[in-house]
């Protein structure tokens, strides 16, 4: 059985705002191909203020789809349409104290219903902007379509690449066979065959490796470009050391100890990888000095 949070169960057993809303003036009907669930979201919007006065739903779906629908209606009631559009699927999942990775698409469906309903109110045509595939990596909830697109866009050729670019396969590693199957397929599209051991070969073949000095300068340039963004949030970053693929940095100001630190670092790491064309790992220098100390014999 799924490991549902108490909040999910509570919203499933006693859903809020369920049933038809007779005087609704915004309706969004969406479904998830992934599992076949579908949802109708009905809103009563005040035309003067564009405030959502009432919201209700009808759902053809599982426990978490019903709970996500219920949560969504609670979140958006009283919001203006513009504010409601900022509600992400993660907000819905967070409201429910999390969803199992396999069930995250239920919250995505909620967000889509909201967008569809707003488009319906404004007389626009809503089109879905993302495609969902079969779930491959259960640790990080990453589906086949995302992996396929990332492999295609970045010319990836190994499972390690896929882990570095998408995180898929970076957890328990039991989905590596599935990732290899995607690689086989996409590589075949570009006329290549998947070789399970391409990683090292590719690195040797890389033309004109940067010297250490060049590489550090490149890193500094990237960090420099990111700096204004960090400073806007009263934080900063400095490069402490470069040890092979590991870059040690110091997060200072508001960034230091910020809950979003990991996310920020992830974003910077992504930028660096794109610029350097190689895999690098960013580590806060405290942790860095610790792990280096620990590795001393």
């Amino acid at each position: 059985m799924w490991d549902y949070s108490e909040k999910v169960k509570e919203h499933f057993f006693s859903p809020r705002n369920a049933g038809a809303l007779d005087d609704a003036n915004a309706v969004g009907d969406v479904g998830s191909l992934n599992c076949g669930d579908a949802l109708r979201l009905m809103l009563k919007v005040d035309p003067d203020t564009e405030t959502i006065q009432d919201a209700s739903f009808q759902t053809f779906g599982c426990g978490s789809a019903i709970a996500s629908s219920s949560a969504l209606t609670e979140i958006i009631k009283g919001m203006t349409l513009d504010d409601a559009l900022k509600v992400s699927n993660q907000d819905i999942a967070d409201y429910l104290d999390g969803l199992p990775p396999e069930k995250m698409h239920c919250s995505v469906m909620g967000r889509e219903a909201l967008h569809a309903a707003v488009a319906n109110y404004r007389g626009e045509e809503w089109r879905d902007d993302h495609e969902e595939g079969a779930l491959i990596c259960k640790c990080f909830a990453i589906d086949a379509v995302l992996i396929e697109e990332t492999v295609r866009a970045n010319n990836l050729s190994s499972v390690e690449d896929v882990i570095n670019y998408t995180k898929a396969g970076g957890g328990c590693s039991s989905c590596h066979e599935g990732i290899e199957e995607i690689l086989v397929k996409v590589l075949a599209e570009r006329g290549e065959t998947f070789n399970p051991h391409t990683v090292e070969i590719k690195e040797e073949a890389k033309p004109a490796k940067l010297t250490n000095l060049q590489r550090i300068k490149r890193i500094e340039t990237v960090l420099e470009a990111m700096r204004p963004q960090l400073q806007r949030d009263h934080g900063d970053i400095e490069l402490v050391d470069v040890d092979g693929k590991t870059l040690y940095v110091n997060m200072t100001g508001a960034c230091s100890g910020c809950q979003m630190e990991a996310l920020t670092l992830q974003g910077i790491q992504q930028k660096l990888m794109e610029d350097l064309g190689e895999f690098v790992k960013i580590v806060p220098s405290r942790a860095g000095s610790l792990s280096r100390a620990a590795s001393q014999p």
């Binding site: 009907d29 969406v30 479904g31 191909l33 579908a38 053809f60 889509e112 879905d128």
Partner: peptide, 16 residues
């Protein structure tokens, strides 16, 4: 009280 008349038409969501 019962199934919508022509249920598949009464509700035809956009699937993604």
């Amino acid at each position: 009280t019962g199934p919508a008349t022509e249920p598949e038409k009464a509700f035809a969501p956009v699937y993604a």
